[in-house]
Every structure is written in C-alpha cells, then in structure tokens.
Amino acid sequence: MGKAGWFRIIPFAVFMAFIGVQQILEWSVVKGWLDLTAQQMLYLYPLKTVLVLALILFFWRQYNELHLVDFKNLTHTIASVLLGLLVFVLWINMDWGFTALGESKGFDPFLVENAASRNLLIFFRLFGAALVVPIMEELFWRSFMLRYVITADFSSVRIGTFTLTSFLICAVLFGLEHNLILAGMMAGAAYSGLLYWTKSIYQCVLAHAVTNLVLGIYVLQTGFWHFW
C-alpha cells in the first residue's frame, strides 16, 4: 500500500477515532466517572473538524486525484448537484428504526444558551459536514478503498474502475459507518456510481457536499437533530 494509502487513511481514522472517544466519554459519564454535560460534549465536533482539516491540508500535495478542471464539465457538475439533492431526499425518508445502528442522540447546538457559542457550533457543524467530511470520506472511500479492494497496489488502479466486489463491499461498509445503515449504503452506492460515470473524485466531493449542506439546513429548520 505504501505512504499513498496512509495519506488517505489517517484523516478518516482520526475522524472515526473521535467518534470512539465521544462514546467512551459518554459511557464514563453514565458510570459517574466523569462530570461532563451534553453541552460540553458538543465541542468535540469543532475540535475534530479542525484536526481533520489540518491533516488534509498537510497531505494536500499527495492528493493527485483531485482536479478542479473536472468542474468544467458542466454536465457532470450539474448531475453531481442533482445527485446530491436526490441522496438528501432519500436519506430523510429512509430513517426507519429497524435500519438504525443504535440510537442517535444527534447534534443539538441549541442546548447551548450562549448565542455566540451556539452560532460557532452551528458554523463548525455545517463547515465540517459540507466541506471537511466530503473531502475526507471521498478520498478514503472512493479514491482509496474502492481501488484497494481491487488490489493492494491501489494507486495502479485507474480512478473510477468498476468491479462488483469493490462496489458492494464499499457500499456496505459506508453504510455501517453511519447510524442509518440502509441510507448510508444508498448514499455510498450513489456516490460510487457517480465516480464510475465521471471518473472524478471532485464530482463525488461535490455531490456529497450538497447532500450534507442541504441536510444541515434541513436539520436547523426542522429540529430533527437525529439526522446530525
């Protein structure tokens, strides 16, 4: 795999590690070992966002699969935006209880009374979900994992190469990464399908970003925090 793989794994691994840390902290609070409020726990997200973004920027020169020129293909770009919107619509209609991996407490910034602190949390949540997460996840899932399942020398595989095995494995794993498993599998399959058509990681980032941004706006408007 070499260093190229780790450049794409590390930001994702750090992001997932924070989820594990949060679960440990919540468990410690239940046990009475720590005295942390739900409001204080919300600040883990800005910390996670800043750290993962710093890692992405540190490794940025290694991501030779990211080409801004890809957005000049207006057909692909418009399709990416539309796909992102479609995934959002499907996502909020696939919140079936039997498909959920545990109970999601969500991210409710209105637990914080101070307006400035609350707005800062909202900014970081939207910024992280709509920019940092799409770049991090698409580099890991669509650039690295889809190709790594084909061969350990993943960089020798052309971006957007299709095999049924890699497609199914990544769709399932992407679903398991999320609280709503089937919705996650649907999104993973959709973004991979976009990659096979456009051969562009940036188009996948765009679609993913649209989904997450619109979802964030929807959550703020409706108060359905479990989607966050």
Rank of each mutant, 00 (worst) to 15 (best):
F123W: 13
S166E: 14
F98Q: 13
L131A: 03
N64V: 12
I56G: 10
F154P: 12
I122V: 12
I150V: 10
W91L: 06
F127H: 03
A129I: 00
E113F: 05
R118T: 07
L74Q: 10
V29F: 00
A100W: 08
A129V: 02
E113L: 12
M185I: 15
H208A: 06
W228S: 14
T151M: 10
F58M: 12
G2F: 12
S28G: 08
F174P: 00
A171R: 00
Y148V: 06
Y148C: 00
A130N: 03
V21T: 15
W228V: 10
A17Q: 01
V50W: 06
V149C: 12
Q40H: 06
W225D: 07
V21F: 12
T163F: 02
V214P: 03
V30D: 13
I150A: 02
R125P: 00
W228A: 14
A189Q: 05
G5I: 11
L139P: 06
K3H: 03
G32M: 10
S166L: 10
G193W: 00
L139F: 10
I10Q: 05
F174H: 15
F227M: 06
G188S: 07
T198N: 11
P46Q: 02
V172L: 15
F124N: 08
F162E: 03
F224S: 11
A183W: 06
F15P: 03
E103H: 09
A189F: 03
V210W: 04
G20C: 05
M186Q: 09
F127M: 07
N119F: 13
P134V: 00
T151S: 13
E113T: 12
W27P: 02
V87E: 06
F18L: 04
L164G: 01
N212R: 01
F144T: 10
F15Y: 14
K105H: 12
W197Y: 14
S117H: 12
M145Q: 09
N114V: 15
V52M: 08
I181S: 05
L85M: 10
Q22N: 15
A116R: 07
L206S: 03
D70T: 05
A129G: 04
A152Y: 10
A209G: 15
F98H: 02
N179H: 11
S155V: 06
A171S: 13
F12E: 04
F227E: 05
